[in-house]
């Protein structure tokens, strides 16, 4: 696992060369460089969709709170761990460029 410096106001973007489709309620993510398929469960799929919509981590957590019974801190920790894993697999990256963030 990488040790990311990431906070609630950060944004994450899907890496180039990554393609994803929703199928049977699960997201299937394809890394076109490595040719590997990854499956995301219900929560993972929710986060993936929110990343695609350009939401910040805190916005992602807020949208999860509307659907799942867990505290904000718990959800934030889970989201960060999940994003850490996605970064490690080179499926997403943290968007540090303020100019490039969604308005």
């Amino acid at each position: 696992m990488t040790s990311l410096s990431i906070g609630p106001s950060d944004y994450v973007i899907i890496c180039e060369g990554v393609s994803a489709r929703e199928f049977d309620g699960e997201w299937i993510v394809l890394d076109l460089q490595g040719g590997n398929y990854f499956g995301l469960d219900d929560v993972g799929g929710h986060i993936w969709r929110a990343i695609g919509e350009g939401k910040s981590l805190s916005q992602i957590v807020a949208s999860l709170r509307r659907n799942y019974d867990a505290s904000e801190i718990e959800l934030l920790k889970d989201v960060m761990l999940f994003i850490d894993e996605l970064v490690e697999r080179q499926l997403v990256r943290i968007n540090r460029d303020v100019m490039d963030r969604p308005k």
Binding site: F23, E26, L32, G35, G39
Partner: peptide, 29 residues
């Protein structure tokens, strides 16, 4: 089989000659 399980079964059965081309991967997806 649903979702990733179904996809895994299909993907493991594909016969590929070009395995290092992202365009071919995207088409297969």
């Amino acid at each position: 089989l649903r979702g990733h399980e179904a996809f895994q079964l299909l993907s493991s059965s594909v016969i590929r000659f070009v395995i290092d081309d992202p365009a071919a991967q995207a088409r297969e997806f």
